[in-house]
Each structure stands twice: as structure tokens, then as C-alpha cells.
């Protein structure tokens, strides 16, 4: 038994050591409470719907969301008719029966469109910076959703003595860019009017859009958690049975 514990401890130690290697951060990012955290974590459907509204009304003018299709919005609790109507608000280039360029209305199978025709156009319209695609942003930054939340609310006056470049803003969480970010402060109280009547404080808007972006990056999170619970339950029973069987078989040696 001692050796089991020792071997298991060795595995755990090595696993946690390897995890801690990446824990180093340059700026401390406070941990936030998210409905999708933890063993049973789930998305809050209404929060995701509000987050979608924030993305659409604020972020989408500069940021694409290229891996998310309108059909995926079913996961936010919308029905087919709502998704069709949502998609139809967008236009996509098409070719008509005569072979001429035309436009068609968006379909549920379409993906969120890129606000810019190409990268150069995007940079020219954004003070030289390229607004990143947001589909994976919540997984593509150290600190994940906690970082996103604090980044979009982390605008303040630069510390004394620091000159911020023209067109840039000071952001205390943007350590990767020397605290100077090309995105100007976007989120303010009542910047959106929520369809569900939720009071649109800065904090609320930032939380909602962060939750939405985490869903966009990890749409299978709920399936992962629920499958995981069933797998773990199975593995616990399996391992216990294996342990008792092992003891029983090894007991033959004592005779």
C-alpha cells in the first residue's frame, strides 16, 4: 500500500510540477467566478445571449469570429427560426445564375463574417494594428477568461512619467504590449441595452462578453464536463473492483 501511495504521489507530483511551470505570470490576474468553472461548470444561457449581443454591437465592428457559425448559436438557447432570422441579417457574396457577382442573405451554415475584406484594410482602419479573431481568444492568452475580463476593463490613466504613443491606450493588464494597447476603451456603463432587461454596468457587460467568448473558444465544455463525470464514475468503480480483485488473487500466495 505504501508503494501505491508513493507511486501515485510521484505521478501527481510530476503532473503538478509540470503544470506549475506555466503558472508564472508577469502581471497578477485576479481569478474571477465563472459559471463554467469547476467540476460541474455550465454556461449560463442568458449570459451567453447577452454576450452575443455585446459582441454583435460592440466587438464585431473590428473583430471577426471566424470559427463560429450561426447554427452554433443553438447552444445559446435559440431556436431554428431565431437563428435563421439572425443569419439573414448578414450578407454574403454570391454568384447568380448568369455568373455575375451578387449578394445573398446569410444562412445558419454561414460563419460570422470578417468585418474587413483583408488584413491591410484592417490595419489601415485600426491605426496599424490588426484586431485578432476572437474565436479562440479565451484559450489563446495566458489567464484565459480572467485575463480577458480584466483586459477589457483594465483601462486607466497611465502612471506618472509614462508617455503613451499616439492612438494607443494605457491598459494595466496588457503586459505583452508594454501596457499600450491599440484598442481604445470600449466598454462603459449602458453601452448596450440588454434585451432581457439586465442592468448594463461595465462589469456586467465585460462578464457577459467574456463568457460568450469562452463559449466560442470551448463550445464543447458542457459535453466535456458531463462526459467526464460519467467516465470518472466508471473509472472509480473499475479501479475499486480491480483493487479488490488484485488483493484476492494475491491472497493465494499467503496459503
Amino acid at each position: 500500500m505504501k508503494k501505491i501511495i508513493l507511486a501515485a504521489a510521484a505521478t501527481l507530483a510530476l503532473a503538478s510540477f509540470t503544470a506549475s511551470v506555466f503558472a508564472a505570470e508577469e502581471v497578477h490576474i485576479p481569478k474571477e467566478q465563472w459559471s463554467f468553472n469547476g467540476t460541474f461548470g455550465k454556461f449560463d444561457r442568458l449570459q451567453l445571449q447577452r454576450g452575443l449581443q455585446v459582441y454583435k454591437e460592440i466587438c464585431a465592428s473590428c473583430h471577426s469570429l471566424k470559427y463560429v457559425a450561426f447554427r452554433n448559436l443553438a447552444a445559446l438557447g435559440y431556436n431554428e427560426a431565431q437563428i435563421k432570422a439572425f443569419a439573414a441579417e448578414y450578407e454574403y457574396p454570391d454568384i447568380d445564375d448568369e455568373g455575375s457577382d451578387t449578394k445573398r442573405k446569410g444562412l445558419p451554415s454561414d460563419y460570422f463574417p470578417n468585418p474587413y475584406p483583408n488584413e491591410k484594410f484592417a490595419r489601415a482602419s485600426s491605426n496599424g494594428a490588426l484586431p485578432p479573431d476572437l474565436s479562440l481568444i479565451s484559450k489563446a492568452r495566458e489567464g484565459g477568461p480572467d485575463y480577458l475580463f480584466h483586459l477589457i476593463t483594465g483601462y486607466e490613466d497611465p502612471p506618472a512619467g509614462m508617455t503613451v504613443m499616439d492612438g494607443m491606450s494605457y491598459n494595466k493588464y496588457f503586459s505583452s504590449g508594454n501596457f499600450q494597447i491599440a484598442m481604445v476603451k470600449q466598454i462603459e456603463d449602458d453601452k448596450v441595452t440588454y434585451a432581457d432587461g439586465t442592468k448594463a454596468t461595465t462589469d456586467q457587460i465585460a462578464r457577459d462578453v467574456t463568457a460568450f467568448l469562452h463559449w466560442a473558444a470551448e463550445p464543447m465544455l458542457e459535453a466535456r464536463h458531463s462526459t467526464g463525470l460519467r467516465v470518472m464514475l466508471y473509472m472509480i468503480v473499475f479501479t475499486l473492483l480491480a483493487y479488490f480483485l488484485k488483493r484476492r488473487i494475491w491472497a493465494r500466495l499467503d496459503k
Binding site: 501505491i4 507511486a7 501515485a8 505521478t11 501527481l12 503532473a15 503544470a19 467540476t39 466535456r224 464536463h225 462526459t227 467526464g228 467516465v231 470518472m232 473509472m235 472509480i236 473499475f238 479501479t239 480491480a242 483493487y243 480483485l245 488484485k246
Partner: peptide, 18 residues
């Protein structure tokens, strides 16, 4: 087989939650 059970418990905890 018992060892595989213990291993999979740790492994799946990471696969499903981290």
C-alpha cells in the same frame, strides 16, 4: 489492470477538467 485504473483516473481528470 489496477495500475491502469489509477492512471486513467488522474489522466481523465486532466483531459476533462484541465
Amino acid at each position: 489492470v489496477f495500475g491502469i485504473g489509477v492512471f486513467l483516473l488522474v489522466y481523465f481528470a486532466v483531459v476533462f477538467w484541465g
